[in-house]
Amino acid sequence: MTNQEIVQDRQARGQAIEVADENLAFRQVVIQDATPTGAQISHAAGFAPAQQAVVLHFLPDGDLEDIRPNQSVDLNAGRQFIVIETDRLFLLTINGERFEWPSRMISGAVVRKLGKVPPEDELLLTRVDQPDRVVAPRDLVDLGKGGIEAFVSRKLSWKLNVQGVVLTLHQPTIIVKQALLDAGFDPTKGWQIFLIVKGEPKRAVGLDFTVDLRTPGIEKLRLTPTGVHNGEAAATPRRHFDLLEVDEKHLHALGIFWETVVDGACRWLLIHNYQVPPGYAPRMVMLALLIPPTYPTAQIDMFYTSPKLNLTSGRPIDRTQVGATICGTPFNGWSRHRGPPAPWNPATDNVITHLALVESAIAKEVGQ
């Protein structure tokens, strides 16, 4: 069959094209011309001449070409058209490329389609006097406010603090071992590794654990060298009294060296080699919690460190003037108490929840 015969055959059977409205929902229609005009395409889409619909040729490269009513189109260049009844075109740019759009409102999904923005990228509307606006697929943007609205896309990113080294990741998950390598830490050194999630007790994790940064509240991985005792800890931990079973399971799971001691009338939980975030000196202390005789009915209050924690900035830490001596060692107390909005609840509060309070109070002083 010659080229002329192919053209004649197509004309006899009709030409299949795709037309869409402002939502870019394409549907197939048949037109009886291999080189239709804008008016013919508008008619095939269901518009009357009086409606003066705008016809945009949606080319394979994403470009939009305005087709006048009497202008012919070569369907070999592309068979998708956007046909909308409107009295004007609105301008926008997507990653610097200029587009015309026949409707005042445009959705994030349509912007993505027009600009061929990958689904894994974030779409933003740039703004001069305030932060850029993240545009979700169903968000609508008004193109008629004056000026040309500019959209940009960028790779989504997540941040993970690995012992003071902030990683910027372009995927939402990472294996702990890889996170250590990326942050410059040798994973073979036998670290004790803890996942810090805001509002939750720290959680011991292994090298093969997958951190999902889409989980709300994930802040950092904290590393503690295994077997470092600074000469503090005895070979066998002292157990002068028992904690709740849930407390002891939690402390064992953390892999830390801890003791319970009775000194005079006071019962103390001692946690050795407790690591604090950057911004403090020293970076490792002994942490002490005073456990009341009627715990958990009576609450755990405050906490103590030895030696005293100081900020490297030199700024004094408010309400840390309380002193205590435990088995001959001086400790410094932090007056941090539960307020009326979240009073101690014997049914749900314990050493675990108080350690979360301790961690939060220490982190707050250095802006974490």
Rank of each mutant, 00 (worst) to 15 (best):
W334D: 01
T348Q: 14
D212P: 01
V228T: 08
A136T: 12
L75P: 03
N345W: 05
K249R: 13
R203Y: 07
R138N: 12
E100I: 14
D247E: 14
P118H: 14
P277A: 14
V135W: 04
N332H: 08
K189L: 15
A179P: 05
V262S: 15
H57C: 05
E232C: 01
R98K: 14
P201T: 01
E219N: 04
T325E: 10
P119Y: 13
P237F: 04
N161P: 09
G190K: 12
V54A: 08
L124D: 01
I317M: 15
D21A: 06
R13Y: 14
F185L: 04
G96N: 06
A234N: 05
Q275D: 10
R203M: 09
K159L: 11
N345V: 13
R315I: 04
I218Y: 00
F209N: 13
N350S: 15
V29T: 00
Q275N: 09
V262F: 06
S153D: 12
E85Q: 13
R338L: 13
L91M: 11
T126A: 11
H252T: 15
I82T: 05
V166S: 08
S42I: 05
C266S: 14
R112A: 00
P330R: 07
G184W: 07
R238L: 06
H354T: 10
L244H: 07
W158M: 00
H250V: 11
P102Y: 07
H57S: 03
Q71K: 13
M302G: 00
P341Y: 02
F90H: 13
K364R: 12
T348G: 10
L223T: 09
L125T: 06
P118D: 15
E149A: 15
V285I: 15
V134D: 01
L140C: 01
G231Y: 04
V117K: 04
T226S: 14
Q299C: 09
A342I: 08
L270I: 15
F151H: 04
L311F: 08
T126R: 13
R13V: 15
E248I: 12
E259Q: 03
W101Q: 04
T353I: 11
T226P: 04
S313E: 03
D121C: 03
D66C: 06
Y295K: 11
I196M: 10
V351T: 09
G14N: 02
I17A: 01
L357K: 04
L223A: 08
A233W: 01
A109V: 01
R267W: 03
D208P: 05
N76I: 09
H229N: 06
A12T: 11
P49I: 14
K249W: 10
F209W: 12
G333A: 02
T325C: 02
I41Q: 01
K364M: 12
S42F: 09
N310R: 11
Q71G: 09
T188C: 02
T224F: 03
A324F: 10
R104E: 15
L160T: 07
A324T: 05
A253Q: 13
T305Y: 04
Q178A: 10
R238S: 14
G144Q: 08
D242C: 02
K189M: 15
Q192S: 06
Q71T: 14
I317A: 11
G217A: 05
K364Y: 11
F241C: 07
I196G: 00
P172A: 08
